[in-house]
Design a protein around this nucleic acid. Structure first.
Lengths: 342, 342
DNA sequence: GTTTTATGTGCAAACGTTTGTATTTTTGTA
DNA sequence: TACAAAAATACAAACGTTTGCACATAAAAC
């Protein structure tokens, strides 16, 4: 199972491996005629460069590491896809790991990527990551890190994030304009930047409309369909709210289920807005108003940003790219039909 | 930015790199005491093995290549996730590419994986792949290939597939038992095994119930929401059908939209069954009856199968693993409420 | 006390590239 | 024709491991 090497080509052509290497690399120090001969012979023998050897010698690889909580989450899979789409044409490959939302697994994954000598890492940290030293260390040891979505400011390197604040602000403002006044907020762990910002936007919108802030209807750790259902049911039974702004569409779908279970009408009695624009948001009944997270755009920017750093055109330290979001107004919240949306 | 190597450890301990290498590898030809000293020193210096160098020397890597049409498709992202979950604890890494459903990109991706000296490839081929030589070649040149979902029998190596035939058969039989008699079939390109098998199951169920087979209501290339909508609209307007068996949930959602547009009742007038059990199937209105493809199971089996081959325990040529599927009966098709389902 | 066997370690080559420097060949100019 | 300059190629070392073989030391057997 011997594979063709540049040495084989060199022998066949009676030149040295260095010349073959240079010819294949398009180095201008080799004559046009040999370059041609080398390429022809390479083609003829079915030569495939050994990237492993090349990486070792060059001291850097063309592999980019990617680390996400879960590959199979819609949002992340779209970011990954976009990253791949940008990286591939530029000659980079994608080594992928998932942390399963565990700091320990995240640490191990970072190590794996490090051992594989990736040229850089694109990542979104796990929900329970408290200590970011393993990520900072990476950056310190010469492996640039680009963070997206869930980011931590103590980690050097670019951060690509959605405009969570404005998204939440728009969502809540929209609810207020539709006449809802007691708006609950179902969210995740507010230690994480994305939920923190959404909470800020929620508070800002209430404040702007001079609505009171009721801490008892801000529910942390209610981001799944199940927890969304339960907390919504609870709030509704106590007649505490007339609308839900959920920091995720799954929680929103749980809330909707709870609302329908109690025979309230949507949007007449209760309004719901989600976050993420999951594929099902547009297929539900009622169709869900939600804030889109542009996963694809995020992936593209993260990849470009990392390429820029790896290729030395930009240190990129501490740069924050904020991607604008969009509110899709649908049936679940639209009582007055004054806003457009798909 | 110099990184610690086994040479550094060797010098610090006044032994040779070979001893360090053996100690770290747990080779029994090194004494317990030096093994301990080496491990301690490695820890102390923060040594991280250079996998690139190791791969080059050993002539094989612990990286597995994965190639799918689209990373961000729900089914594929779940398979990828499962594969990662199995591979990672076994010490393998995952290099990922997407073909975007183009034979050319698939070819290039295979090449990329090959150049990266992956130990094996797990893949599902692109929809428009006609010539499988590039995949066969891979296998011939010592890179084992495990195919899943979309598979081609001319490629050596294991194939992991869903029981598409039985899934389709169950779906159509269910429709028939619910009293539907003119069942359309919206499907993909029947050159691909998955659609071929589903078509066979459809035909078999009709035949079993002595229902006529009407080629004009078998619509190829109708697998997206849009094409599903259009073809369903067309069939309904011509009053040709009273049910749809769609080879994908997106087409089914399009069909449902068409049915509702024409003010038919679901499931009273028209029944719909999909395929895949996409996340939205359970959240739609009406909730969609569909056949589950167990993506996670498929990924696990594909990964295990490849590991088995790579580690030499099994040539695995031509083995076909068929994963049983399950029909989830929901509102979109259930007129008589006799069947269970979630 | 010598020989044999086990046990632990060292030596050096190899994996397939890349690249700085040296050497040869070609080209241009006087 | 000679000679410098430029162009093309060769040489050799390096990247960080792994591993077959040789070697030394210690334990066991005679």
């Amino acid at each position: 199972m011997k594979r063709i090497t540049i040495i084989d080509i060199a022998e066949a052509l009676d030149v040295t491996p260095s010349t073959v290497s240079r010819a294949l690399a398009g180095n201008m120090r080799v004559s046009e005629v040999t370059r041609l001969r080398v390429h022809q012979k390479a083609e003829e023998l079915g030569y495939q460069p050994n990237i492993v050897a090349s990486s070792l010698r060059k001291g850097r690889s063309d592999t980019i590491g990617m680390l996400v909580p879960r590959i199979n989450r819609n949002f992340f899979s779209h970011v990954i896809s976009a990253v791949e789409e940008v990286l591939n044409p530029s000659g980079y490959n994608l080594l992928i790991c998932q942390s399963h939302e565990r700091e320990l697994k995240e640490k191990q994954a970072i190590n794996v990527l490090f051992k594989n000598r990736v040229a850089g890492i694109i990542m979104s940290h796990s929900i329970d990551t408290i200590n970011f030293d393993h990520i900072i260390k990476c950056s310190k040891e010469g492996v640039p890190v680009v963070q997206f979505d869930r980011v931590n400011k103590t980690v050097p390197g670019p951060r690509i994030i959605n405009d969570n604040f404005t998204g939440a602000y728009m969502a809540v403002k929209h609810l207020i304009r539709n006449g809802y006044t007691r708006i609950a907020h179902l969210t995740g762990l507010v230690g994480v930047n994305v939920y923190q910002e959404r909470l800020k936007g929620y508070k800002y919108a209430l404040d702007e409309a001079s609505l009171p802030l009721d801490q008892s209807i801000i529910i942390e750790n209610a981001i799944t369909k199940e927890t969304g259902f339960e907390h919504a049911l609870n709030l509704l039974k106590n007649n505490k709210v007339d609308a839900f702004f959920c920091a995720g569409d799954f929680a929103a779908s749980g809330a909707i289920q709870a609302i329908l279970t109690l025979d309230y009408k949507i949007p007449d009695d209760i309004g719901v807005v989600g976050f993420a624009n999951e594929p099902f948001a547009d297929l539900m009944a009622p169709r869900l108003t939600t804030v889109e997270q542009n996963a694809f755009d995020m992936g593209v920017r993260a990849a470009r940003s990392l390429i820029r750093i790896v290729e030395g055109n930009n240190p990129g330290y501490g740069i924050e790219e904020i991607i604008p979001v969009r509110l899709y107004v649908r049936e679940s919240s639209n009582r007055i039909f004054i806003e457009a949306g798909t």
